[in-house]
Design a protein around this nucleic acid. Structure first.
Length: 498
RNA sequence: GGUCGGUUGGCCGAGUGGCUAGGCAGAGCUCUGCAAAAGCUUGUACGGCGGUUCGAAUCCGCCAUCGACCUCCA
C-alpha cells in the first residue's frame, strides 16, 4: 500500500479531508453516468474524465477500486420535475424506434467516445431498466419507514416528513422552507403533498411505452431512485466516493441522499465529489442550451467555433490543465496551447527512453530538483487530484530531459537511482495516471508507408548534398499539406497540416 | 429574488499568509546546408475600497463584475 496520503475536497462538508476508505485497500466509487437519449457532448466527457483520473490515481496508489457508473435508460423526464415525457421514450417516438434501440444506439456512441478519450471503463456499468426490482424494493423500504406516500398509483418521497428527522438540503445548501416557498408553479404537481416532494415511482399513462409491473400498478421509476438502488446493490449501504457533475447536486444527489437515509437510516456516501462545468462562450455547455459541441466535431473540426480538428489527447490534456473544480471556457487559443503542451510532454516521454545514464560528476542542485519534482508530482495529485500542478511538474522535468537528449542523449549530472526513478515516475504519471497516450500523425498505414519511403529518399539526397532535390520534395509535400520536420539526428518525420 | 462560486501578467491557468507555479504568445539564443520543427534563457500579475497582521494575491467586511444552482442537464 502506498504511504502517500490522499486528500479529497468533500462537497458535502465543503472541506478538504484526508481520504480514509471504509475498508482498505478496497474503495467503492459511484459516478452518475449519462442518460442515453442523445450523443454525449464535451461537457459530459469532462465529468467522466475527472473520475477517470480519480479511478486511475486510486489504482496507482494500490487501492482496489470498484467503480460503478450507471447508464440511465429510463425514468429521466423531459420537462419539469416529475412531469413530462421520459427522455428515452420521447426520442424513441421521434425516431420511430423501440426505446431500447435508442438506448443501444447512444450507449454504443457513449462507449466509443470514452474509448476515444482513453477513459477507463468502470468495473460495473449497470442500467436503470435492469434494476427495476431493486428500485421497487427500495421504495417499499422507504414507505415502510414512513417517508413516502402513494397517490393514484404513483409514489412520492415526503420531503417534509423526512426533514423532521433528518436534515434535507445539506449537500446543496438548500433550506426546505425556501424550497416550499418557491412561487414557481409547475405542472403535474397536484398529486404531491408538498412542492419539494419528488417521485419515486410514476404511474404510466395510457400509451406509455416504457413501463413495468409494480405493487402499485404499471409504471416506471423516478430518476433519482436508480442511483440509490444500484449504488446500494453494488457498493453497499455506505460507500466511499460518489461523483458527478455540479449540476447534479440538486435535486439529483440531494434526493439520492434522502432516499438512502429514508430506506436504511443512514447516509450513503463518505466523500462527495463534484466536477465543474465546461463553458462555451462563457455559458455552461448543455444540451438544453443548445450550445454543446460533440467530441467528434472537436476531432474533425466540423464546428463553426473551430478552426480545425483537435485530437482526443489534446482535449484530454486541455481538461487536465485545469483543476476539476474550476470552470473551463473552451477556445481556439486554449486548444492550440494544449496541443503544443501535449506534444511537448509526449516528446519528453519518448526522449526519456532513449537517454542513457553515465557515471559522472553529480550536480547536487539538479539532483535535488529532480527528486523534488518526482516527489511533488505524486503529492500534487494526492492533493485533491491537482492535475494542473502535476503537469507543471512534468514540464519542469521535461526541461531536464530535453536538455540531456539534445546533449548526446546522455545524462551524468544526476545519480543513476534518481534517473531510474525519474524514468519510472514520468512514465507512470503520464501514461497510467493522466491516461495520455501517443497519437500517430495519421491513421493511414498506406500513407505512412509511402511517406517513410519518400523521407528515406530525401535523406539520401541530403546525404549527397543534393539540396535542390531535398528542397523540392519538402516544398511539394508542403503544397500537398504535409510538413516535413528534420530533427537533429538526421532523421525526419512528417505531419499532416491541419 | 434566494443560495453558492469565481474575478491572477497580452492570453490561458495553478496557488500558499512572508519563499519562481506552469503553459501559450512576445523577445534573445542554440541546433540545422537553408528553412521549418525542436531545445535553452527571459520580462510583465494578483477586480476596487477598507480592515486584521510585523507582513496579504492569500484571512475578514463592503462594492463592482461574471457565472452556476434554485426547472431537465455531466
Amino acid at each position: 500500500m502506498n504511504s502517500q496520503s490522499l486528500y479529497i475536497y468533500n462537497s458535502y462538508t465543503k472541506s478538504k479531508e484526508l481520504f480514509e476508505p471504509i475498508n482498505p485497500p478496497f474503495v467503492g466509487m459511484y459516478v452518475c453516468g449519462p442518460t442515453v437519449y442523445n450523443d454525449v457532448h464535451l461537457g459530459n466527457v469532462r465529468t467522466f474524465l475527472t473520475f477517470d483520473i480519480v479511478f486511475r490515481l486510486l489504482t496507482y496508489l494500490d487501492y482496489k477500486v470498484r467503480y460503478v457508473r450507471n447508464i440511465t435508460d429510463v425514468g429521466h423526464l423531459v420537462d419539469d420535475a416529475d412531469h413530462g415525457e421520459d427522455k428515452i421514450a420521447k426520442k424513441a417516438r421521434l425516431e420511430q424506434l423501440e426505446p431500447m434501440e435508442i438506448v443501444q444506439k447512444y450507449t454504443i456512441g457513449f462507449h466509443d467516445v470514452m474509448r476515444l478519450m482513453n477513459i477507463t471503463p468502470p468495473s460495473i456499468e449497470p442500467s436503470a431498466s435492469g434494476h427495476i426490482i431493486e428500485q421497487i424494493e427500495m421504495i417499499n423500504n422507504i414507505m415502510a419507514n414512513g417517508f413516502a406516500y402513494e397517490v393514484n398509483g404513483s409514489i412520492y418521497f415526503d420531503v417534509v416528513q423526512f426533514n423532521e428527522q433528518y436534515p434535507y438540503g445539506k449537500l446543496s445548501g438548500r433550506v426546505l422552507e425556501d424550497l416550499l416557498a418557491t412561487t414557481r408553479e409547475l405542472d403535474g404537481q397536484e398529486e404531491k403533498r408538498n412542492k419539494a416532494d419528488f417521485a419515486l415511482w410514476k404511474k404510466a399513462d395510457k400509451g406509455h411505452i416504457m413501463k413495468w409491473n409494480s405493487p402499485w400498478g404499471e409504471g416506471f421509476p423516478g430518476w433519482h431512485l436508480e442511483c440509490s438502488a444500484m449504488s446500494t446493490k453494488y457498493l453497499g449501504k455506505v460507500f466511499d466516493i460518489h461523483g458527478g457533475g455540479m449540476d447534479l447536486k440538486f435535486p439529483h444527489h440531494e434526493s439520492e441522499i434522502a432516499q438512502n437515509i429514508g430506506a436504511c437510516g443512514h447516509a450513503p456516501v463518505n466523500y462527495w465529489m463534484h466536477s465543474n462545468m465546461l463553458n462555451f462562450n462563457g455559458k455552461k455547455m448543455s444540451k438544453s442550451e443548445g450550445n454543446s459541441i460533440l467530441p467528434m466535431e472537436m476531432v474533425t473540426g466540423q464546428h463553426p467555433l473551430l478552426d480545425k480538428g483537435y485530437s482526443p489527447m489534446t482535449l484530454r490534456f486541455l481538461f487536465l490543465q485545469s483543476h476539476y473544480s474550476s470552470e473551463i471556457d473552451i477556445s481556439i487559443k486554449s486548444l492550440h496551447d494544449a496541443e503544443k503542451g501535449f506534444k511537448k510532454i509526449m516528446n519528453a516521454l519518448s526522449y526519456l527512453s532513449k537517454i542513457t545514464w553515465k557515471a559522472g560528476t553529480i550536480n547536487e542542485a539538479s539532483e535535488a530538483d529532480i527528486v523534488k519534482h518526482s516527489n511533488e508530482i505524486v503529492s500534487n495529485l494526492c492533493d485533491d487530484f491537482n492535475t494542473a500542478k502535476a503537469i507543471a511538474n512534468l514540464y519542469s522535468m521535461a526541461s531536464y530531459i530535453n536538455t540531456w537528449y539534445h546533449q548526446n542523449q546522455e545524462v551524468s549530472e544526476i545519480s543513476e537511482e534518481a534517473f531510474k526513478s525519474l524514468q519510472k515516475i514520468f512514465r507512470d504519471i503520464v501514461i497510467d495516471v493522466l491516461g495520455l497516450k501517443e497519437e500517430s500523425s495519421s491513421d493511414n498505414n498506406a500513407l505512412d508507408a509511402a511517406m517513410n519511403l519518400i523521407i528515406e529518399l530525401r535523406k539520401q539526397a541530403r546525404a549527397e548534398k543534393k539540396w535542390n532535390v531535398s528542397d523540392q520534395i519538402r516544398d511539394a509535400l508542403k503544397t500537398a499539406g504535409i510538413i516535413i520536420k528534420d530533427s537533429k539526428d538526421g532523421n525526419s518525420s512528417y505531419e499532416l497540416e491541419s
